[in-house]
Amino acid sequence: MSQQMTPGERVRAALRGETVDRVPFCFWHHFRPQGSGKQLAAATFEFFKTKYELDIVKIMPDLPYPEPVEGIQEVEQLRFLPRLELETPAFQEQLLCIRLLRQQLGPDYPLILTLFSPLTYLFNFMGADFTGKNLILAGARSNPAPIEKGLAIVADNLQRLMQAAIAAGASGIFFSCMGATNADFSREEYLRFGRPYDLEALKGAQAGWLNIVHIHADPSQIEDQVYFDLFTDYPVQVLSWSDRLTGPSLGEALELTDKCLMGGLWERGPLTHGSETEIENEMLGAIMQTKGHRLILANGCSIPDDVSERPLQIARRLLDQLH
């Protein structure tokens, strides 16, 4: 294909498994918007559009879902998580960010809002790093009722936010799910504590055309295996995971799902510190595994915020040479 596509045309073609002029490309890290949707919109536009001209603009979760004011010390407290309306300040700032970016990007530029799964938010409420996750894992096995109640409340809140985000101009939701690995829940446990609440939240994104589930494996847990097959029937168009960190490979995943795949680049690898040859080899490897079909070339998870611009600039320059 010789005619150059717009980002919207390119991404839509990739979702349908059609030929593209080049693979869609995206990478991301976090920003510090100080609670301001306006500041986050400005930083997002400058990074994704002005500086790197990426095919998808991804609003990072830097205006976070509000944690309970008094903090959560015990699993039993999860029964009483608040029901949040769209007037919640953090939600209003996210919606403002979407509207501002849509005004700047025009009607068809792919724009996604990053949100976490209900289970991921509960992990975060209970403590940083692995502390919260371990408390939820233990609680789910010994006292599941308050956890299930809390999950249901968060799923309901997210459903309303997703619906409003699509109405405000988002093309879809980037939905990041923790806990679906063999280092965390068993498959049966994720089917109980993860999947039902994921699906309830995602009902709010039904009107989106670019919904993405990210199956998260922590970079420090290199031996993790994600339960990829548990997500292949989720109501989304794209599956994202750290394929360079954990299985399946891109080539294997093509046989497991008819959805578009998002990945190919290791978030702690050549994209952040590699030579031009190393970056090119990783990009080519991803394209060769998929023959460039049903692929959005991207990092498996967020790259470090302090990464040098040099490898990112190299990757973006190489992109136009890779067909």
Rank of each mutant, 00 (worst) to 15 (best):
P304M: 06
G263F: 00
T114D: 07
F175K: 10
Y190R: 08
A138W: 11
V11F: 08
G139E: 01
I112D: 02
R244E: 14
A170R: 03
G71K: 09
A183H: 15
V11M: 05
E200C: 00
A170M: 09
F27D: 03
M5V: 05
P68I: 13
Q225Y: 01
R244D: 03
A13R: 14
V20S: 06
I287E: 06
L158K: 07
N157M: 05
H29C: 14
G139Q: 01
S117G: 02
L95D: 06
G264S: 03
G172M: 03
Q225V: 13
Q94V: 14
T50Y: 07
E67N: 02
I173C: 06
S275H: 03
M162I: 03
K133M: 15
G8N: 08
D218M: 07
G17S: 11
P64E: 13
D229S: 14
Y52T: 09
F25R: 00
L54F: 04
L113P: 00
K259C: 03
L95P: 06
L265H: 04
L40H: 01
L284I: 08
P144T: 08
F125L: 11
M288Y: 11
R16M: 12
G8H: 09
P24Y: 08
M178H: 15
G251L: 11
P68V: 09
L312T: 00
Y197T: 08
P24I: 10
G71W: 11
Y234Q: 00
L230Y: 10
L210C: 14
E309H: 10
K203A: 07
Q163I: 00
D198C: 15
K133A: 08
P311G: 04
E53L: 12
F80W: 12
Q159N: 12
E267Y: 07
L158G: 03
F45G: 04
A201C: 01
Q104R: 14
C301E: 04
I296V: 15
R160M: 06
E74C: 00
F125R: 06
H30L: 12
R294P: 01
R317G: 11
R268T: 14
N124S: 12
K38S: 13
P33G: 08
Q237W: 04
V236I: 07
T88W: 04
S249D: 05
T114A: 10
A155P: 05
L111D: 01
G300Q: 05
L239R: 06
I212M: 01
P235I: 08
A90C: 07
F193Q: 13
L96R: 15
L111A: 09
R141D: 07
F123Q: 10
E87R: 12
H293L: 15
Y65A: 01
R16T: 08
I147M: 03
L297C: 03
Q103Y: 07
R192S: 11
E93M: 03
F80H: 13
A140W: 03
Y121H: 15
K133H: 00
E148S: 11
N124G: 11
D184Q: 12
I173H: 01
I222E: 14
M178W: 13
D198T: 11
F185R: 05
M288K: 14
I215P: 09
A90L: 04
A164S: 04
Q321Y: 12
F47M: 04
Y234P: 02
C260N: 07
I56D: 02
G71N: 13
L295M: 06
F130I: 13
S275Y: 03
P68T: 12
R317Q: 14
S142K: 14
P61I: 10
L135Y: 04
V307P: 00
V307A: 15
L265Y: 02
